[in-house]
Amino acid sequence: MNFENILVEESNGLATITINRPKKLNALNKVTIEELHNAFKTLDADTNVKVIIITGSGDKAFVAGADISEFAHFSVEEGGMLARKGQEILFDFVENLSTPVIAAVNGFALGGGLELAMACHFRVASDNAKMGLPEVSLGVIPGYGGTQRLPQLVGKGKAMELVMTAGMISADEAKEAGLVNHVTSLEELLPLAEKIASKIMRNSSVAIAAAIKAVNDNFKDGTNGFETEIKEFGSCFGTEDFKEGTTAFLEKRKPNFPGK
């Protein structure tokens, strides 16, 4: 896959997407958002890809925000469409991907960058990372899911404070708040993400996809997550992965999941 603003590497079931706009601190513009959508869509359709890691190029930023120059003069209608389309093709799309997505947050994750990290299934961060939603300092609010996902991860009160103050928190503060799962050095960030990915890849990709759907449905209005869990649990019984997993357990050997 050849792109203008992102790099994609695949090896042994693991795909790594690197947002590659270092001079712009990897800021999200229209082209980058569309390229990310296409990359995630292609990788999710590839049955050989079991886990996706997304990170930023360089050592300063994961994504330092959205490219403000692209929408500074938008009308009310254009602003609404910007948020709606962005959520549909990238942020909601990533959250509901059947392939696990790990955000490796290296440096600044601000505005749309933090919103992208929060859309991933979980996050690891380097100890130089800084995270925040500074939108109200520009006279606007987070529009790519930030007001919804941040409270889910850190609680309403903490989210309100972060949004209202437009402040940044450190990687350690983010871990304490539940925003990231692990903090490590910049040098060890990708190796840590890859280590976690290797553990994920030992398990059934079919069951993991079902688990992602069940967990996500708990946070959707009008959807009963318990019912989704029951349905997905039952569906697992009809898969080749279930047959292999239970057979391997009974035979006291490691499973070799076909991913079907």
Rank of each mutant, 00 (worst) to 15 (best):
G107N: 10
V154H: 08
L116M: 15
A117I: 06
G111L: 03
A129G: 02
Q148N: 14
L114V: 07
K158S: 12
V154K: 02
G167C: 00
V136Y: 06
L116W: 09
G107L: 09
L110W: 02
L133I: 13
G146I: 08
M164H: 08
V140G: 01
A159N: 07
A166L: 00
A125R: 07
I141D: 12
P100H: 10
G111D: 12
G155I: 02
L133Y: 05
H121E: 12
G145F: 10
C120Q: 04
N128Y: 07
E135D: 15
F108E: 05
G113L: 07
A129P: 07
N106S: 13
G155L: 03
L150D: 03
A129D: 01
V105F: 06
G111Q: 02
Q148L: 14
A109H: 02
F122S: 13
T165R: 00
A129Y: 01
C120N: 05
A119N: 10
G167D: 01
T99C: 12
P151E: 05
K158Q: 13
K158W: 02
V101L: 09
H121Y: 11
F122W: 15
R123H: 14
M118V: 08
G145D: 10
A117T: 07
S126L: 11
N106T: 08
F122R: 12
P100K: 04
R149F: 07
Y144C: 01
I102G: 10
L153Y: 04
A109M: 02
R123P: 14
L138N: 13
L133E: 08
E135W: 00
M131A: 05
E115N: 12
F122E: 14
G157C: 03
L162S: 07
P142F: 03
M160L: 14
G167A: 01
P151N: 04
L138G: 02
F108D: 03
C120I: 08
A166Q: 01
R149M: 13
C120L: 08
V140C: 03
L153Q: 11
L116Q: 10
T99Q: 08
E135Q: 13
L153P: 04
G107H: 05
A159F: 01
P151K: 02
S126C: 13
A119W: 08
P151W: 01
A129F: 05
H121A: 12
E115P: 09
V101M: 06
A117P: 09
K156Y: 13
G146K: 04
M164D: 10
G111T: 02
V136T: 14
S137Y: 00
L162K: 08
Q152G: 01
G139Y: 02
H121T: 12
D127Y: 14
L138Q: 10
V105H: 04
T165A: 00
L138Y: 13
Q148F: 12
M160Q: 14
D127Q: 15
L138E: 06
A159R: 02
